[in-house]
């Protein structure tokens, strides 16, 4: 029988654990945006070496499952003498995986802009820097909002993977809860509700941003 009280009781520990889910995915996307911007610059660079470096970065991070990458980072760091808590390995992995997708989202948005947008700026004698800051980037960022929100939602869900290295986020907390109460269904259903609640909020944030930045 389904126990409503067990189900409701699971929410408190899971909500506490949600802080780690939000920390991993939030820091992951924030760092991912920064690294992704840098990778995007490399990908659009005139230098062939820079473009190859960006392509290798993106191919590896998109081509290897995040769980495997997480384990690689988690076990690699101590080998090269960096001893960090599991949460750091989790954030680093999430950030670099996100950076690969984000750099592609931005590259796509920038190259999707008609050439004439930059040409109009060049033709009146605008400096390349101003044309990027005033003309290209505002449009590219606005264009990329729906995909960035999508990426953030994917990251929130992917953060469940970091439970395997011992980070007490929603998924691991629900496993612990199930172990204590011997009621796995209630624990995992509560976890499902929490994930859904977080992602519905993110989707609403996305719609609001899209509306605000609509051109």
């Amino acid at each position: 029988m389904f126990s409503l009280s067990t189900f409701l009781d699971a929410f408190w520990p899971l909500t506490m654990a949600a802080r780690y889910t939000l920390l991993v995915s939030g820091l992951g996307i924030a760092l991912g945006l920064v690294i992704g911007a840098f990778v995007c610059v490399l990908a659009l660079s005139k230098s062939r070496a820079a473009r190859i470096a960006a392509a290798v970065w993106v191919s590896y991070l998109r081509g290897v499952p995040m769980l495997v990458q997480l384990l690689v980072v988690f076990f690699l760091l101590p080998v090269i003498g960096i001893d960090v808590p599991a949460i750091v390995a989790a954030v680093v992995t999430t950030a670099i995986v996100a950076s690969a997708y984000i750099s592609e989202i931005w590259r796509g948005a920038i190259t999707a802009l008609p050439r004439g947008q930059a040409e109009a700026a060049i033709a009146i004698g605008m400096r390349p820097r101003d044309s990027w800051i005033r003309i290209i980037l505002p449009q590219a960022v606005a264009l990329s909002i729906p995909q960035l929100i999508n990426e953030l939602i994917l990251l929130v869900k992917a953060s469940s993977l970091v439970s395997v290295v011992g980070v007490m986020e929603i998924t691991r907390a629900s496993q612990a809860q199930a172990g204590v109460t011997f009621r796995p269904l209630e624990a995992y259903l509560a976890a499902a509700c929490l994930y859904l609640a977080i992602n519905l909020c993110l989707a609403a944030l996305g719609r609001w941003l899209e509306h605000r930045m609509a051109v």
């Binding site: 004439g116 040409e119 109009a120 060049i122 033709a123 009146i124 505002p138 449009q139």
Partner: peptide, 20 residues
């Protein structure tokens, strides 16, 4: 080159206005 372009106006077939 930018200094020279400053005194040359250009109008394009597709207008190329900045939509934002």
């Amino acid at each position: 080159l930018r200094a020279m372009r400053r005194s040359i106006g250009m109008v394009f077939q597709q207008f190329n206005l900045w939509p934002h």
